[in-house]
């Protein structure tokens, strides 16, 4: 643990959404002001891809095409957070994994001693249907460490520019 803070290893989860970009900015600022190390994880959801093929919604050719798109998206977002971190003199360890996002985040937290997970916004509760639960919601419920949810995109972007 850092001397004055209850966490020393921050993980931010990236999924390509604007919300996860805001979370990245917040995580970079948090790492800079607390001295905590920063990790960034993008999980390519191969579990969902496999399920879509099994359900005959995707054909194999389409699965391969999406895998390529997702890999490009993952690399783009890891590069993006590296640039954000660099601009604030913070080092980030970025990693791309494949599988079920909530399970992979849980695994990463345990394997790397993460003690704070930073997420983009979670859904408002508009449906009780479990099938409509987002990956961020699942992570919020299943993470074995404290979770920080970033909400106000515009304010965060402004804070990042000004800090």
């Amino acid at each position: 643990m850092s001397e004055n803070y209850p966490f020393s290893r921050i993980l931010v989860y990236l999924d390509g959404s604007e919300g996860s970009m805001s979370a990245s900015m917040y995580a970079v600022l948090l790492a800079r002001s607390t001295g905590a190390s920063l990790h960034a994880l993008y999980c390519i959801n191969t579990k969902a891809l496999g399920d879509l093929v099994k359900a005959h919604i995707f054909v194999s050719q389409e699965k391969a095409e999406y895998l390529e798109d997702l890999n490009k998206d993952a690399r783009r977002h890891i590069r993006h957070i590296e640039k954000l971190a660099q601009s604030k003199n913070v080092t980030v360890r970025g990693e791309i994994v494949e599988g079920s996002p909530s399970a992979e985040v849980s695994r990463y937290i345990k394997a790397n001693g993460i003690d704070l997970l930073v997420l983009g916004p979670v859904n408002m509760i508009r449906s009780r249907r479990e099938e409509l639960t987002s990956e961020n919601d699942r992570m919020l419920r299943t993470a074995s460490c404290p979770v920080l949810v970033c909400r106000d995109d515009e304010k965060l972007w402004q804070m990042f520019e000004e800090t």
Partner: peptide
């Protein structure tokens, strides 16, 4: 085209709902 993760997640939700 720019949001493949979102696309997969939406399709996956539809597929899961339709298993009921």
């Amino acid at each position: 085209q720019d949001k493949p993760t979102e696309h997969i997640q939406i399709l996956s939700s539809i597929a899961k709902l339709c298993t009921s």
